[in-house]
């Protein structure tokens, strides 16, 4: 089932609102160096709609080289605008795409570690698939629910969280490689099912 042949970190910024700070941090030399040290050889970034050219600029700023390899777009659920690069003298492969229609299978099949923005959908996608997850809160959003939800999940020990800076992300990565998370409880609840059943058949 699992087709991870290369140790991969998957970064998701959410579909609609771009998260430039996170993109720039995960591509930074310091973070990539750390990734290579921990044995990661592939970085997949889902950067959000209408952010393709900025993504390319950021990669090139950090010395990324464009590669013309076949990307498994079918499996990743992305379209032909997906791009592949290499960073750190070819030691790290980078794949970038705007959006995936198969988020769950991308996480299941292509991720050893997930870094996600603090949207509940993305958080649940990873946790339900039992993937280790680092949440990065977008502090430039006006919505403080993301901060609350991140704090709550950290408090419960289901995820690590970090701020969108290079040192923040490195700290998160180190934690993920040395600490263990609590397992996320299953969502099926018998009492809730009983409540629904009683109501439906009353």
């Amino acid at each position: 089932m699992c087709i991870i042949e290369k140790k991969t970190i998957f970064v998701t910024c959410g579909a609609t609102i771009p998260f430039p700070k996170l993109v720039s941090c995960v591509l930074s030399n310091g973070f990539c160096q750390e990734l290579i040290q921990y044995g990661f050889v592939r970085l997949i970034v889902q950067f959000g709609r209408n952010y393709g050219s900025e993504f390319e600029n950021t990669v090139q700023e950090y010395g990324g080289q464009k590669e013309d390899k076949m990307i498994p777009i079918e499996r990743l659920g992305c379209d032909h605008s997906a791009r592949q690069y290499t960073l750190m003298d070819g030691k790290l492969e980078v794949i970038g795409f705007d959006f995936s229609t198969k988020m769950q299978s991308t996480i299941r099949d292509y991720s050893d570690l997930v870094v996600s923005h603090a949207g509940t959908g993305s958080i649940l996608d990873s946790l339900r698939l039992n993937k280790p997850l680092i949440i990065c809160v977008n502090d430039s959003l006006m919505d403080n629910h993301q901060q609350q939800i991140a704090d709550k999940f950290v408090e419960l020990g289901y995820v690590w969280s970090c701020v969108p800076t290079e040192t923040g992300l490195i700290a998160g990565l180190r934690a993920s490689q040395t600490e263990k998370l609590k397992s996320f409880p299953v969502s099926h609840n018998t009492s809730f099912e009983r409540l629904l059943t009683e109501l439906i058949y009353s």
Binding site: T16, T120, E193, Y201
Partner: peptide, 29 residues
């Protein structure tokens, strides 16, 4: 847990469920 099954009478009529989908996050949940 059996009480769930007990209440679920073998009704001949199918269950009818209305759901509402509005936008991304709500739809996901």
């Amino acid at each position: 847990e059996v009480s769930v099954l007990r209440i679920q009478k073998p009704s001949k009529k199918p269950l009818k469920v209305f759901i509402f989908l509005g936008s991304g996050g709500h739809t996901g949940e």
